[in-house]
Design a protein around this nucleic acid. Structure first.
Lengths: 154, 154
DNA sequence: TATTGTTATACTCTATAACTATA
DNA sequence: TATAGTTATAGAGTATAACAATA
């Protein structure tokens, strides 16, 4: 088998992984009343602490208008509140509600459990080979100019 | 370092890969006047040959209404045409235009090139370790009940 | 004058439900 | 009666541009 077709097979597997995880994430979040975009905002908020919508827009890489919509949705469903900024009366501080904090903590636990389910049954040598190759792939992607804002990773 | 935190790190890398590839695909397709959803329909059409919207809806896992919208967009931008079904006058056959075929062939070439860029510089042993681990991960995901319709992979 | 966030407007993707034409 | 596809309607995410309030 040619290298090209082996590369192509590996790329296909990566794309299958992308589709699989994206669909699963979408469905799981929907059960909690969240979308992927809104959850990404919550993850950013978790790392940042209370912050302005301007900061969220930059971290998420979306427009200010989009953040207004996402925060509107999260306020309506009770995950966050808008609080006045202590020194800048133009700005608002987006802050978790108790429900929002509980939800994000539950998601962190679920991610830990998911990691165990994925890898705990894998021989150590196999796991090491996989993570090494994955790191190489990410390095190559960065070299190719693909960058992203780390909003999902904890 | 605990297994849990190693698992967590690997999962974070996978999620980074997901975000990175998704963003890159979105941007590349936008340059050709396509969205990810519309391109996915074209890939399905490439595998199926001319087919009804009903078939496309099932393969893509979306509603008939959604396919109407996607095909509307692809017709307006010149990638496909609706042709009458030879035997069933209710149905339409969605078919590539020349531009649509040329686009899909260019994407296939680009994917091949992308595979080479990703893996050609990787030592054979590293590549084998990565693909073996990746296959294990996909098996585990299937065992966990995550399935998908293979619309992206060629 | 510059910045924060909103309203106004528009496009895409998604869904359910009602409807038309055909099988 | 069932199926293929559309129209009607709605919600979510995305964007640009104009605007208000404040810095």
């Amino acid at each position: 088998m040619s290298d090209d077709s082996r590369f192509r097979g590996a790329l296909d597997h990566i794309l299958e992984l992308v589709v699989l995880l994206n669909d699963d994430m979408t469905q799981s979040l929907a059960k909690e009343g969240l979308t992927v975009s809104r959850a990404t905002l919550l993850w950013t908020l978790r790392q940042r602490g209370p912050c302005t919508q301007r900061v969220l827009a930059e971290d998420l890489g979306v427009s200010a208008r989009t953040v207004t919509g996402l925060v509107d949705g999260l306020v309506a469903t009770g995950f966050v509140v808008r609080e006045p900024h202590p020194t800048d009366r133009r700005a608002t501080l987006v802050t978790f509600t108790e429900r929002g904090e509980a939800t994000i903590r539950a998601q962190e636990r679920a991610q830990g459990e998911f990691g165990r389910q994925l890898f705990a049954g894998m021989p150590a040598e196999r796991f090491d080979g996989f993570t090494a190759g994955l790191a190489d792939v990410l390095d190559t992607l960065h070299d190719l100019g693909l960058t992203h804002r780390p909003a999902v990773t904890a």
